[in-house]
Amino acid sequence: MKTSVNVCGIEFKNPLIAASGTFGFGREYQDFYDVNIWGGFCTKGLTYEKRLGNPTPRIAETPMGSLNSVGLQNPGFEDFVKYELPYLKTLDTVVIVNIAGNMVEDYCRLAEAVSDCDIDMVELNISCPNVKEGGMAFGTRPESIKNVVGSVRKYCKKPLIVKLSPNVEDITQNAKAAEDYGADAISLINTVSGMAVDIYTRQPILANTIGGLSGPAIKPIALKMVWQVYNTVKIPIIGMGGISSAQDILEFMLCGARAVQVGTYNFMDPYAPVTLLDGLTKLMADCKIQDVNTIVGDLKAR
């Protein structure tokens, strides 16, 4: 049975990638399992300068979902190189660094800097809903996507994944813009912008008022967008949004995802990749799938 996949010439031993922001810089789950079991993992969103992020509360539970507003807290590039990179080099899994910034220049500077590091891929975060400047502002319109992707492309020497926001008018136009201006792959969806309210305090639950919704609640939105983008672009797609079972993985792959990212499910099950991979091989056997690659985009249109 074959579960390995290839995205932009990079070999993943399986299609599971830990999603940015749910897996730190890869150390935290070591006590629970060998983190090299992942096909790959995306680091927490990195900015050139250190960021403290938003005030707390930063998380709220919503029906079948989790709403968060961390605001890109991260140690900044220098401390990343000093404290995180040496550890990342020891890993036997695909390491993807998720990068963010306030201005196009920030993205370019960081893309160039991480390109010189011993990492495998770069994921361009132009879809964070939780920061006032940059983030999602770059990722909602095709014009701004062209600008930031085109600029970063000149500085990024690693395969470039562009992570798209679902909070947009037409996801296909944004995906096309990313492809046309140099993206090697597209990952989607980032969180759906949302809000939670406490009726007793009459306040928003999150200190930042709004946040990003993740978890099973957003899976149908994500599936739809992965399918739409698959029918629009030729570059590989990494799908995500509420994946919490082996069946979910196959659903995303049928809609066109070459690999998938797992985020919120890590909080539900601290052995997430172990559980999902075990389920995946069993489900593939049940469905008589010899090679997981054969189902990518194999959704029969109605």
């Binding site: 922001g21 749910t22 935290e28 992020g53 998380i59 961390v70 890590n266 909080f267």
Partner: peptide, 23 residues
């Protein structure tokens, strides 16, 4: 504090701590 992962990966349960002159 409200938590996500519980093991330090998600940075949701932040507490501001003074270390010297830095927060």
């Amino acid at each position: 504090e409200r938590m996500g992962c519980g093991v330090g990966a998600c940075l949701v349960c932040t507490c501001q701590v003074k270390k010297g002159n830095n927060i």
